[in-house]
Design a protein around this nucleic acid. Structure first.
Length: 340
DNA sequence: CGGCAAGGGTCACCTACTCA
DNA sequence: TGAGTAGGTGACCCTTGCCG
């Protein structure tokens, strides 16, 4: 009896065994590559939730897709675990990103258009610093799409589907497609400051009620800054973000993007309840204590508990999103009612 | 043969402890 | 105080066996 000793591959360096990986149009292309394109970087557990089927088989499949393009100059999927560990060294889950070859395959299959992901471009700069921010956005939109799929009450439209529905005359190729004109003013002590600028959301999606056809557009913002307040409108701040979105919805500047009948709401994800209280306070100050029905807040614990890898969170869809001066909002009813 | 599930080994971390 | 070691843990990888 001969004992076969096999060298274990490193999880961070590609090494192929040479097995044939014929891509399945459904399981591999539609349920793994497409979610990566739409949401951005996703941890293993999220990808396996999109893939469905057996958890073990899915994990084995991700391993093959990762390793078997070793030596090629374009890859199906990337692992970015060194940066991922930097966020929380306790996690062993991999963080996956779409590779160039994976994007080509999606395009050839006709599942995506020619455009580059405008929201991802924003995150690509200063990748290390922005990685926690990017992952907060991607896991939020992914959790909501997975829950909408599971409950079947709403159709989730991702950013690229929103782009496809846009009228061609609004698709200005010279600028980021989701940039919206914001004209804001604010009185600091006794100084009135004004500013005009283009606001680009961190994330974008639309939920459409399957029964009533009511659709609501959502902009997602991740708020990680240490300070939410501001003393001017020059620099980015939560105050500036709030005034920007308020100006956009008042002027209906979101309509060309989301459609004439679609309202816009803003989902703000952050890491602590304390941050939410700060931001609500800023809204109350800026609105003479009237509050805002537009802004919804939710804190996600720093990428899940320290002991476990982050898992899709369906309560982002079914649970309450707090608002300043208004009752909580529920995505699965598109209203302030907790039940349908 | 390929897809799948299960089980055990391996890796890359962790904490607690000992010792110079 | 810091280095080294032992033991623990979660996720990943590989092999095996089952099924059609």
């Amino acid at each position: 009896m001969e004992i076969q000793v096999t060298e274990r591959r490193s999880r961070t360096r590609r090494k192929k065994t040479g097995v044939n990986i014929a891509l399945s149009p459904d399981f591999d292309v539609r349920r793994i590559l497409l979610p990566l394109y739409r949401h951005g970087k996703l941890p293993t557990a999220y990808l396996l939730a999109f893939r469905g089927g057996s958890y073990t088989a899915g994990r084995n499949r991700l391993t093959k897709l990762y390793h078997e393009t070793a030596g090629e100059n374009a890859h199906l999927i990337h692992r970015i675990s060194p940066n991922w560990r930097y966020i929380n060294p306790l996690y062993r889950d991999e963080l996956y990103d779409l590779g160039e070859k994976g994007e080509d395959i999606l395009r050839q299959a006709g599942l995506i258009g020619e455009y580059q992901n405008p929201l991802q471009q924003k995150a690509r700069m200063r990748e290390m610093v922005n990685l926690p921010h990017a992952v907060m956005i991607s896991t939020t939109t992914a959790s909501i799409e997975l829950a909408a799929q599971k409950f079947g009450t709403h159709r989730f439209f991702s950013w690229d589907e929103v782009l496809e529905h846009m009228q061609p005359e609004h698709l200005d190729t010279s600028e980021v497609p989701f940039a919206m004109q914001a004209d804001i003013g604010y009185r600091f002590d006794d100084r009135l400051e004004r500013k005009s600028y283009k606001l680009i959301p961190d994330g974008v999606f639309v939920l459409k009620d399957q029964a009533s056809s009511e659709a609501v557009g959502f902009a997602v913002e991740a708020e990680n800054r240490k300070q939410s307040g501001a003393s001017n409108l020059m620099h980015t701040s939560f105050l500036k973000t709030f005034l920007g979105y308020r100006s956009i919805t008042r002027a209906n500047a979101h309509r060309p993007i989301f459609g004439e009948k679609t309202s816009l709401m803003v989902l703000v994800v952050t890491r602590s309840q304390r941050k939410i209280e700060e931001m609500k306070k800023i809204i109350m100050q800026a609105t003479d204590n009237k509050g805002s029905a537009l802004f919804c807040f939710r804190h996600i614990p720093v990428l899940g508990s320290p002991e476990a890898a982050p898992k899709p969170d369906q309560t982002l869809f079914t649970g309450a999103w707090e608002r300043a001066g208004h009752p909580p909002f529920y995505l699965h009813t598109l209203s302030d009612k907790p039940h349908r």
